[in-house]
Design a protein around this nucleic acid. Structure first.
Length: 603
RNA sequence: GCCGCCCUAGCUCAGUGGCAGAGCAUCGCUUUCGUAAAGCGGGGGUCCUCGGUUCAAUCCCGAGGGGCGGCUCCA
């Protein structure tokens, strides 16, 4: 907003102490850029009301109450910002009383600012920041002068709700970013382009991995043959590892009576996410949103002894959850997905050993994909929790001990737990430095209680087991999306839908090409042959675009010498060699990694 | 769900209130070729759906469907 008078110069760059306001130089720069942007928008649209404009992880945004922006507003706002920056105005800070602040912003008609002031606790300092004519309620800190903002960019517009609540006014958000140098900005914009290039939705189409069909329904994934191979490899791997570690595979139905989910508590806590209620013969049925109640049903199918605990049921369970249409996103956020799920039924004194084994298992699996950098998170009791606080405290203490015993640093996500128990989450870091949470281990005292699960203890008494819900990859769909983006579509050979393609130089080598393909297939490799009338260069190009790890060129020369001329997708040509030799090499290289032995390099 | 933008050939995308276009792919023919696109020719469209305005709608308006960017990293 404009002020006629300029505040007396006081401290400029001084943050007020407030825990969650970041105060690194870059955040300061970006927050200052957001003020400049707000000023620019106000110059273009004097009636726009300002709200908030924080620095965020890779830039900043500012929310306005104004008419929606159009794409070409980006340039206009940038041009206006450039002027403000060229003026090299000083950022000035002033502390005023609550009353002065209210009068000032009410006078400007800045109702959002008034609301913010009213929400500031009594006794806290209220400060204004001004550059030129633009004054904003702001805790700071800021840079000294607008001229210090040397590299910025307005990125996009979006709708956002006041205070993030959809019951509140719809605001217009402008996203931007700023960096200390033009080179840094350029690098960031390149990263954004790279992320776009790796978008699993784009690659999924290009590589013919999967699709989502309007007729089938949004959020429901169709796995094409090539995507199905990737998924199959993952599922086989999980099935094998799970058995090695003492789990028992089970299968459960996709639909169940409403009572099951009522008993599990899902109906009460998950109602808005439940898919399709149907009524048949006077019974109400629901599509399963989680596997746990079904595994519980197996557990309670007969009396259990302490001797058989821990009981570990594993299932690649497909679940359906209704997600609001606006949040669906490729394979990342869908309405039907498969979890590499498992439920462990254990005694209280098995908690630590089992959780520790889970953590090891998770780390081993993640390492197979080359995810070495893993962060640990502990999520504690949320607001809408079920059960007794004492049980929660015991569970949280156990989790803490396990995490501490691993020697790995971990962060605590207060209130981030599920409604039935606290959890451990693992986050991986992909080739672009983005973090993804896939692996999760959740302790649950509630479900056994609700279903009155029991086991007979050594002294003959009936005791209640504790459950651990765990998923390593999480949702297979989402995990594959992460893999696609991590590898930029160039899967390591053990995951590649086609591992080797035979490319004939001309029709003259067709029969030999088929023979070579046969040898590869017989060796257990996923191979095919391009016998089309395309020229060699075109065939190579197609194989490159499909990101096939090995191309085996066969022409008359190779045919005569009974060899193949291999080329890798990195563009390297390997010496011509007998097919059997190469097949052996490839089989070894394509072996599915096991026990945490990595066999993957990110693209 | 909400706000904005988008929906044209299998794919990527031009375009117009009055015959609907390109490149790639596909099909046919020619070429028989040595490491990232051979040449020529043919076929291919309810311009997302429904309704309205108009002499006339792919285009303008409305509703619906689908997609994309977002929707508290708080003054």
């Amino acid at each position: 907003m404009r002020a006629r008078s300029v505040w007396p110069v006081s401290e400029t760059v001084r943050p007020r102490n407030k825990g969650d306001v970041p105060d690194d130089p870059l955040s300061r720069l970006r927050h200052s850029a957001s003020h400049v942007m707000a000023d620019a928008v106000r110059r273009l649209r004097p009636n726009a009301k300002v709200t908030i404009g924080p620095a965020i992880e890779n830039g900043f945004y500012y929310d306005f109450d104004t008419e929606p922006f159009a794409p070409d507003d980006i340039e206009r706002i940038e041009a206006e910002m450039a002027k403000i920056i060229a003026q090299n105005l000083a950022f000035e800070r002033k502390v005023i009383s609550r009353q002065e602040a209210l009068v000032f912003f009410e006078g400007k008609g800045e109702s959002y600012k008034v609301e913010i002031i009213k929400s500031i606790p009594e006794g806290e300092e209220i400060s204004l920041y001004q550059h030129g004519d633009f004054v904003d309620l702001c805790a700071g800190p800021h840079v000294e002068r607008t001229g210090q903002i040397k590299a910025f960019k307005v990125l996009s517009f979006a709708g956002a709700y006041w205070r993030g609540d959809e019951h509140n006014a719809q605001l217009q958000r402008v996203y931007g970013t700023a960096f200390a140098s033009r080179d840094d900005l350029k690098a960031h914009l390149l990263r954004l382009e790279e992320a776009k290039r790796r978008d699993h939705r784009v690659l999924g189409k290009q590589l013919d991995l999967f699709s989502v069909d309007e007729l089938v329904g949004p959020g429901f994934v169709l796995w094409h043959p090539k995507g199905a191979i990737v998924r199959g490899v993952l599922e086989d791997l999980i099935r094998k590892e799970v058995v090695k570690r003492g789990y028992q595979p089970v299968y459960t139905p996709h639909v169940a009576r409403e009572q099951l989910l009522e008993k599990s508590g899902h109906l009460a806590h998950y109602k808005e996410n439940l898919f399709g209620g149907m009524e048949l013969e006077g019974q109400r049925y629901l599509v399963k949103p989680m596997n746990c109640p079904f595994h519980v049903a197996i557990y309670r199918s007969r009396l259990r002894s302490y001797r058989e605990l821990p009981v570990r049921y594993a299932e690649l369970g497909t679940v359906y959850r209704y997600e609001r249409s606006g949040v669906l996103h490729g394979l990342m956020r869908v309405r039907g997905f498969t979890q590499d799920d498992a439920h462990l039924f254990i005694t209280e004194d098995q908690i630590e050993a089992e959780l520790a084994a889970c953590v090891r298992f998770g780390m081993d699996v993640l390492r197979m994909f080359g995810f070495e950098e893993v962060k640990f998170f502990m999520a504690t009791r949320p607001k809408d929790f079920m059960g007794e606080i004492e049980a929660w405290n015991r569970a949280e203490a156990a989790i803490r001990r396990v995490l501490e015993s691993t020697g790995m640093p971990f962060e605590v996500d207060e209130g981030g737990g599920a409604f039935y128990g606290p959890k451990i989450d693992l986050k991986i870091r992909d080739a672009l430095g983005r973090e993804w949470q896939c692996t999760t281990f959740q302790l649950d005292y509630q479900m056994p209680e609700r279903f009155e699960l029991e086991y007979v203890a050594a002294d003959g008494s009936r005791q209640r087991p504790i459950m651990i819900h765990r998923a390593l990859l999480g949702s297979i769909e989402r995990f594959i999306a992460v893999l696609i983006e991590h590898f930029a579509g160039a899967f390591p050979i053990w995951l590649a839908p086609v591992q080797a393609r035979v490319i004939t130089v001309s029709e003259k080598a067709e029969a030999y090409g088929r023979e070579v393909e046969g040898v590869l297939l017989a060796a257990g490799l996923r191979a095919d042959a391009d016998l089309s009338a395309d020229k060699l260069n075109a065939k190579i190009r197609n194989a490159q675009l499909e990101k096939i790890p090995y191309m085996l060129v066969v022409g008359e020369r190779d045919m005569a010498a009974r060899v193949v001329s291999p080329r890798t997708r990195d563009g390297k040509q390997l010496p011509a060699q007998p097919v059997d030799d190469l097949a052996k090499t490839l089989v070894a290289e394509a072996a599915v990694p096991s026990l945490g032995v990595p066999n993957s390099k990110p693209a």
